[in-house]
Amino acid sequence: MNQTIGDFLFFGSVLSLVSYEMGIQLKKRFKLAIFNPLLISILIVMAFLSVFKIDYTVYNDSAKYISYLLTPATVCLAVPLYRQLNLLKKHSKAIIAGTLTGVLTTMCTVLLIALVFGLNHQEYVTFLPKSITTAIAMGISEEMKGFVTITVASIIVTGILGSIIAETVCRIFKITDPVAVGIAIGSASHAVGTTKAMEIGEIEGAMSSLAIATSGLCTVVFASIFANFL
């Protein structure tokens, strides 16, 4: 018996899916936002790997097949967007204004906090693309010579946080219009938040998908300008 758990091709996917299912069950039982299925499943997988001393690379070797579907799934975000195309045209002005606000707010808050903590240039640019989809953000961070691993970490934490707080924030601040809710979630927390927006409703999901693309592209432009400020 020289077999290790890493030799099983389906180990990573099964561990991930079972953890996610446990997250869904927990969420059903305790209807609290903090029991976010994605957050729960990540914590369960992390705990499992630490307890059984399994390397992340071993896990990812068999779990990468789920991540493989991420590109086709992102392509499919076009479908709800297409179904809501009339709404997009009708509110194009509001959507553009909202997206620009989102991108500029990200940049300004990052700059402000970087000044408060006295971060250096390299640390500062690392956080500029934190609210957008990983693939675009990695490119920006690399280009500006930031720490790409930390950029990715902040994107993931942002996404999970965004999907946990979305409903509460929108309720407290009376953001009730489905288009506004969607643009807010997508601008603040990219594709991970969008999965939450999809749960809330079709319009919210479609607008959130739109915001992934628009705020991602705007960030390409604005990050290179803001990079000169510190």
Binding site: H91, K93, A94, I95, A97, G98, T99, T101, G102, T105, T106, T109, V110, I113, A114, F117, F127, K130, S131, S154, V157, T158, L161, G162, I165, A166, V169, C170, F173, I175, T176, D177, V179, A180, V181, I183, A184, I185, S187, A188, S189, A211
Partner: peptide
Amino acid sequence: VITLFSTVIVMIMTGKVTQFFIE
């Protein structure tokens, strides 16, 4: 601090501005 603070602020600002224009 950056991750928490800016995510919350961005969500509020974006939502509010979008909603303002729609209204």
